[in-house]
Design a protein around this nucleic acid. Structure first.
Length: 217
DNA sequence: TTGGTGATGTTT
DNA sequence: AACATCACCAAA
């Protein structure tokens, strides 16, 4: 093989752009309107993260909607705090929090500034950078367990509090349209996972029959 | 395959 | 004391 010399390799990678970098971020208007509808529309979309010289993109397979002051299970139910302030930012803002003192969880806010609605990313399918994701998730027994939970998704993608308050429209951090069509007939819904409040609300949405979910149905 | 439990930050 | 969790271990 006639590999380029290391110095040339470095130069080449500096100039290199991937197909994923050419995908543009969803417009801010995507995050306005009915949050439950936005949650469904996020299924099949992509989350792109580029950091530390690696690049990861995943397809969103499972989400949950949290409806701010109208929702007793929402972190924002009782107003702004030191932790939940990004929820009150404009739609398209990222809200990351530490769950149970252990795991990070990532949301995208919806609605305008001051309206604290958000959508939690619960599970996803690796599309690019699966080797990096495997390195981040050494305890996963198989690839279906890489991103099948909100904490695992953050661990796999390398999401931590440095992303808290960022917007999903950056060259190195964005939500993109992958061109995947998701008919409403292939979307399932259920009560949200792990909460007891408002358990009558079917605000968890997922790609029906997907093997990448945090749990079935 | 399931069910209980520890770890542990933020808020009530 | 509850919680938008995860991984481990024991029991079945």
């Amino acid at each position: 093989m006639n590999w380029p010399k290391p110095s040339l390799q470095k130069q080449a990678s500096h100039l290199h752009t991937t197909v994923w970098e050419k995908y543009s971020a969803l417009p801010s208007g995507f995050y306005l309107g009915d949050t439950l509808k936005i949650a469904k529309n996020l299924l099949g979309k992509g989350i792109y993260v580029k950091k530390d010289g690696y690049e990861v993109i995943v397809e969103i397979a499972e989400v949950e909607a949290y409806l701010g002051s109208k929702d007793a299970a929402s972190h924002a139910y009782r107003g702004p705090t030191k932790r939940n302030w990004p929820m009150f930012e404009a739609g398209g803002t990222c809200y990351v929090y530490l769950s149970y003192g252990l795991n990070y969880c990532m949301n995208v806010c919806t609605q305008g500034k001051g309206h604290a609605e958000a959508i939690l990313f619960r599970a996803a399918r690796p599309i690019h950078g699966i080797d990096i994701i495997r390195q981040h998730r050494p305890l996963a027994h198989n690839d279906y367990q890489l991103l099948n939970g909100p904490g695992k998704l953050c661990q796999g993608m390398g999401i931590d509090l440095t992303y808290n308050g960022m917007t999903f429209d950056r060259p190195d951090f964005k939500i993109v349209d992958l061109g995947i069509k998701v008919p409403s007939s292939s979307i399932g819904r259920s009560p949200r996972v792990g909460i007891t409040k408002a358990s009558d609300k079917l605000w968890r949405f997922f790609l029906k029959y997907s093997p990448w979910l945090s749990r079935k149905g």
